[in-house]
Design a protein around this nucleic acid. Structure first.
Length: 477
RNA sequence: CGGGCGGUAGCUUAGCUCGGCAAAGCGCCUGGUUUGGGACCAGGAGACCGCGAGUUCGAAUCUCGCCCGCCCGACCA
């Protein structure tokens, strides 16, 4: 691909080039604030639809809560406030006289505090529980270092906030949601993930524990792709969210929160792309099949157009998102263009094909050309898209496997990350000091997740005491 | 938020040291020839030279402040 930096030459530049040239997103001119363009937003919409269906199916409801949070709402949960303090943006003045506000308003960095403050009104009895809320919105975090989709000062997400009558029910909730996240990543984005618990150092501020899904990008860096937090009664205590239980005693709620963000669009770019640009998983692809007509003059154009008109309705009937590229460009130009945009399947259709009653099918992964008869083309392409989705996932899974390792000492880990990439599983004692030493000595390597089976064997890679956890280490975005 | 680098047409950049008519390639528009892997010819449009002050007869060029971006650190979905 001309115009984009080679992935092998400079991954970061490659990423930025692809995001901008494929028209996913851009910087806005306002520091750290991005503009998501239609092609990128359509991918986010596909993710939204998929996830929204999942949570509605299990009884969650969408709400809209305020953008601005009064200071005294925000500061009640000590750990939470401390965690977010550095990145909160404040509204301190307003009105025609630009008067100083009596109480500053925070632009939400996340909404636990205001949802808690409001939802308690609607919870009196155990009969009012669970409350399963979600909202689709954007939040602001005053980041110092920004990257399109991966870290911007505003980003779009869903934030679920749920309130339960028992600890077990709340813990089941965070498991349920993590399962949804795993499905979004693997089944929709075709990105295989490690799913597990965060170490205390990586746990969300105010949470008892945090569950995460972690994907591996093609440069070997890990990316957190979704988190689900169990709060126990921490927020209920701070915000006095209580209910009367069956024995008519006051009890504090158990709550959770969970989110996935527009970062996932960046994840699919970095997990699947190549030197020619994007490769978009069919299930979230705004355009799944692009048709490139090949013709010389008005007469041959009419011939091809009539031919395509004869079967394109089948694609629509099969629910395939497709587009015919009639732009006045040469075919080679169009091939390169749609490859850069990552469209999974392309059909080249010229006079020869019309005569043979076929089209030439090219997929974005193998780029092999195969003749396909137009008879039954809707079903055929639906199959091809399903195969493509599967092949893309398998390729990513192969990459993950090749780049997952086992090590047992800190020295080995340091040696690995000096030149190596990927995930490294190690035994760990659970001590925060040992965790800090890994980060310091292995150059920013962090504990990405704890093996969900909590299988522990051997000795801690740092201190040599008996290990209590098996954890995956990686450099992360 | 600290250190380094940068901002000139839609994009990539030259010009800046040493002040003197704002350039090139790509892209865009028009016409023509073309069209099965990134075409060619001719003509044309397009620039508050990031913004604001200052120095000067004169500033893209020198000085100061600010804004935006990139790289490196501390922090992070």
């Amino acid at each position: 691909m001309k115009d984009i930096t080679k992935m092998s030459a400079d991954f970061d530049r490659w990423y930025t080039d692809v995001v901008r040239k494929a028209e996913l997103a851009d910087w806005s001119g306002i520091r750290g604030m991005m503009v998501v363009r239609p092609y990128g937003w359509a991918m986010w919409e596909a993710i939204q639809r998929a996830f929204d269906d999942m949570i509605k199916e299990s009884g969650h409801e969408n709400w809209a809560f305020p953008l601005l949070i009064p200071r005294d709402y925000l500061i009640k949960e000590a750990e939470h406030v401390e965690g977010f303090a550095p990145e909160v943006a404040w509204v301190t003045r307003a009105g025609s006289g630009n008067e100083e506000l009596e109480e500053p308003l925070a632009v939400r960095p996340t909404s636990e505090t205001i949802v808690g403050s409001i939802i308690k009104r609607y919870i009196q009895s155990h009969r009012d529980l669970p409350q399963l809320t979600n909202q689709w919105n954007s939040v602001v975090r005053w980041e110092m270092r920004t990257r399109l989709f991966l870290r911007s000062r505003e980003f779009w997400w869903q934030e679920g906030h749920t309130f339960h009558a028992s600890a077990q029910e709340a813990m089941d909730e965070v498991d349920l949601i993590l399962g949804y996240y795993r499905d979004i990543a693997q089944e929709w984005l075709a990105v295989p993930v490690l799913a597990g618990k965060k170490s205390p150092a990586e746990t969300f501020p105010g949470a008892v524990y945090t569950l995460t899904i972690e994907g591996l990008m093609r440069d070997g860096m890990a990316l957190q792709m979704g988190t689900s937090h169990y709060f126990g009664q921490n927020f209920a205590r701070a915000y006095d969210i209580s209910f009367s239980n069956k024995e008519n005693e006051r009890e504090l709620c158990y709550s959770t929160s969970w989110g996935i963000t527009t970062r996932l669009v960046g994840a699919l770019v970095m997990a699947h792309g190549d030197d020619s640009g994007l490769i978009v998983p069919p299930r979230v692809a705004p355009i799944q099949v692009v048709i490139v007509p090949i013709f010389r003059d008005a007469e041959s154009r009419a011939k091809v157009e009539t031919f395509i008109g004869g079967w394109s309705g089948e694609l629509k009937a099969a629910g395939i998102r497709h587009k015919v590229d009639w732009r006045d460009e040469r075919p080679g130009d169009k091939y390169a263009h749609w490859e850069m945009k990552g469209v999974p399947l392309r059909l080249n259709v010229g006079g020869r094909d019309v005569d043979a009653g076929q089209v030439e099918l090219v997929d974005r992964l193998s780029r092999q050309r195969r003749p396909v008869p137009v008879a039954g083309i809707g079903a055929r392409l639906a199959d091809e898209l399903a195969s493509f989705q599967k092949a893309l996932f398998e390729r990513a899974q192969g990459f993950l496997k090749e780049n997952t390792f086992e090590r047992s000492t800190l020295a080995e880990v340091v040696a690995h990350f000096k030149v190596g990439i990927g995930f490294v599983w190690v035994p760990w004692c659970g001590d925060a000091e040992c965790e800090a030493r890994i980060k310091a000595e292995a150059g920013g390597v962090t504990v990405r997740t704890i093996d969900p089976d909590e299988r522990a064997s051997g000795k801690c890679l740092v201190c040599g005491k008996p290990a209590t956890h098996r954890v995956a280490l990686a450099r992360a975005y």
